[in-house]
Amino acid sequence: MADTTPQHPDVDGVDGGVGLTALLVAAARAIETHRHDSLAQDTYAEHFVRAAPACADWPVRIEQVPDGDDNPLWGRFARYFGLRTRVLDDFLLRSVDTNARQVVLLGAGLDTRAFRLALPSDCVIFEIDRPGVLAFKQRVLTGLSAAPKVKRVPVPADLRGEWSSALTTLGFDPTAPSVWLAEGLLFYLPGPTESHLIDTVDRLTTAGSALAFEAKMEKDLQAYRDSATYTATREEIGIDLLRLFDNGPRPDSAGDLAAKGWSTSIHTPFDFTRRHGRGPLPEPNDALEGNRWVFAHKPCP
């Protein structure tokens, strides 16, 4: 397939650029949902995929993929997204089992945790993303007559700019514990923007809060350009991830949080593949080799 997809990161919505990757993740969650050994269930995911003309022919079940799990995009890469969803679901549920009742999804995309997770009834989920992405998401959910299980507050904002005032204006309380997820977000942002975002999360959180995010540790992303994952994503659906990722130096956000007093742990996705018995394992020239999942907690005095 020729690469005709709009790649500019400033496209607002899901028709191109980074917004289109939200549909890629939704398709992966749909495939994961229909597996007999599913790690995560998201019955809304395939409806997002079918509602967007850009991905009308994408699969939503592994049986629709001619080479099935041998396909590096819809097999291995999609299974990666399914594993990531499960791991962050578990992190969120553990966090609200303690005392956090505010959830902030940074770059929420087509996340449906407010609709599908068994969260405490007094939880509030704030979903921050660009207006076009949130508008598309709302149209699909309204068409399904979907009702969230907890209070859900969309926050239309660009995370590359000033977004904290929009969050607090809509009811977020910095003095109460909170849990934050940045799922598949930071490597699209310039390094200084990531650092500002992490500093802002620290400023808006109190003791007992938690943060999970995904980072990439490769020294040279372009060294993996011909990996099976990036090649299949370019050729099969026209998304050139390496043109969307920011190729500048990455900050050490986990180290920055530790310096601010947070406790942090860093894991490879493969750690969780082994824990759950499902998901990707390392392979040669692996586009996932540098991916890290970081879990941070702001301790109580």
Rank of each mutant, 00 (worst) to 15 (best):
D67L: 10
H47Y: 14
Q64E: 15
F48M: 07
D42T: 12
A54V: 15
D67K: 07
P72W: 00
A54K: 07
N71R: 04
D70N: 12
L73N: 00
G68V: 09
E46V: 11
P66E: 04
I62D: 01
T43F: 09
N71T: 07
Q64T: 09
T43Y: 08
L39K: 04
W74R: 05
A45F: 06
L39A: 08
Q64C: 08
F48D: 03
A54L: 13
E63S: 15
G68F: 02
T43V: 15
P72M: 02
P72T: 02
P66D: 03
Q41C: 13
V49Y: 02
Q41N: 08
R50D: 07
L73F: 00
D37L: 06
A40H: 13
D70Q: 12
P66V: 09
A52M: 06
V60G: 03
R61E: 13
V65W: 00
I62H: 00
P66W: 08
A56T: 13
D70C: 04
D57W: 07
R61F: 00
I62Q: 01
C55R: 03
V49W: 01
L73G: 03
W58Q: 06
A54M: 09
A40G: 08
Y44C: 11
W74P: 05
E46C: 09
G75H: 01
D70K: 12
E46K: 09
C55I: 09
D69R: 14
W74A: 07
F48K: 07
Q41G: 00
A54P: 02
A51T: 11
D69L: 15
D70M: 07
Y44K: 05
P59R: 04
Y44N: 10
V65K: 06
A54C: 11
E63C: 06
Q64G: 10
P72A: 03
Q64V: 10
T43N: 10
V65Q: 06
Y44G: 02
P66T: 07
H47A: 11
Q41L: 14
P53N: 08
L73M: 06
C55W: 00
P66I: 08
D67R: 12
V60M: 03
V49E: 02
D67V: 14
L39M: 12
R61C: 11
E46W: 06
L39F: 04
F48Q: 04
W74L: 08
L73T: 03
W58T: 10
L73R: 01
A45R: 09
G68T: 06
R50P: 03
D37E: 11
Q64R: 13
P53H: 07
D42L: 13
A45C: 11
G68R: 13
V60Y: 01
G75N: 02
T43D: 14
A40N: 07
D67S: 12
R61A: 12
A54S: 14
A45G: 08
Q41D: 10
I62G: 02
N71K: 06
W58D: 06
H47Q: 11
H47W: 09
E46H: 13
C55Y: 00
F48C: 09
C55N: 02
S38V: 10
E63F: 01
I62L: 15
D70G: 08
P66Y: 05
A52V: 13
V60P: 05
A56W: 03
L73E: 01
I62R: 12
H47L: 11
N71A: 13
D57M: 09
A56M: 04
D37W: 00
E63D: 15
S38H: 12
